[in-house]
Design a protein around this nucleic acid. Structure first.
Lengths: 193, 193
DNA sequence: TGAATTAACGCAACTCCTTTGCTTTAACTG
DNA sequence: CAGTTAAAGCAAAGGAGTTGCGTTAATTCA
């Protein structure tokens, strides 16, 4: 016997204000103390809020960090344009790999993955990536070029990069990233060649 | 002025016994209570150990879970053999994807990634994968077939699968996994085709 | 083999994160 | 503008995590 309770969410004034204050406080304390010394009570104090508010809204520190990280991973600008589709993707991949493999980038990814078992925050990150790729693809189509096969780009360009970052492997060779894009455009030879 | 202290680690009797007891207790409590209700004191009590022992040796619950998970992710057997290299890889990928995308598999991966910023446990998992692929490759070479390009297999077969699992995407289409291997062996066409 | 050394565990006290029941505030509804 | 009820504040209780110190036992070396 389960009652379906309609629970309306309040998005207005105070809630929005507190969310902003908590996010701000979190970012400030991360840069001041680092993640090691970060605690919910400390964030609450900085934000002018009681700890129980954070615990009830976010559930705990990992979920809060994931929320903040996911927000940071949202691209601030549209991907750079370039004369050709290949060059545009090349440029985007280079920047993507640089940002994600940097110290702060790895920390953000770590935070997002630690957030929760629920794919709430990870899903957001995937969407950001797809959105960027779609912009690049649409611009190219407007010039008469073929569209990007988005799924293949994710599988064979984005995934290899993220795999190495997530599993702590080096990503210092810029030529390797370019090779991923080249392989996508030029095709790959059958085995044994 | 830094003193380099040689700190020898003790691997003998008691340490090994306690490590085994703690691992056993962890696994038992995971299946009894689930990860949500899991705590270090509970594990310590079950293992007949004081909590401080666990905190000092592992550092905390996430690191302990990562250690246990990494141990579980170690392959129990050599990969299945098959008449040809392609079939052997095909079979391995199918099993790999099945195990990793299952509920328990995703939980183990999550635990390993949450373990620590240090690539201690993630590195182990990568090694397991590479080792399995190397076995498949070596067996094929003994039959006169070409070796597997290990790095390419990781980049274009393993990475796409792991990316989808880690970011909470579906992985229900077995044909998609086969397609990854086919693409590796048959090559991929250049764009715009 | 046996004594010396010291890494690792047990114990206990302490700190403070986390949870929870209740009250108060203020966002939404009609 | 009054009524309803999410969401925040407050405070107390519970429990996770930390640390200093004594004890145990693994390792080394004579």
């Amino acid at each position: 016997m389960s009652e379906t309770v309609i629970r309306q969410v309040r998005t207005g004034g105070r809630s929005a204000r507190i969310q902003a204050a908590v996010h701000e406080a979190t970012e400030a304390l991360i840069s001041e103390l680092g993640r090691a010394a970060l605690t919910v009570p400390a964030i609450a104090a900085r934000a002018g809020v009681t700890p129980s508010t954070i615990y009830r809204r976010w559930g705990g520190l990992p979920a809060l960090l994931a929320d903040v990280a996911a927000r940071h991973l949202r691209p601030v600008a549209e991907p750079a344009d370039a004369p050709t589709l290949r060059e545009a993707l090349q440029a985007w991949v280079e920047q993507y790999a640089d940002e994600m493999s940097s110290g702060p980038g790895r920390a953000l990814i770590h935070d997002v993955l630690n957030g929760s078992a629920e794919p709430e925050f990870t899903g957001r990150c995937c969407s950001y990536t797809i959105d960027q790729l779609r912009v690049i693809s649409d611009r190219a189509m407007a010039r008469g070029e073929p569209p990007l096969p988005l799924e293949e780009v994710v599988d064979h360009v984005v995934a290899p990069i993220m795999y190495r970052i997530i599993f702590g492997l080096d990503l210092t060779d810029p030529a390797w990233c370019r090779g991923l894009v080249d392989r996508l455009f030029d095709g790959s030879p059958p085995l044994e060649g």
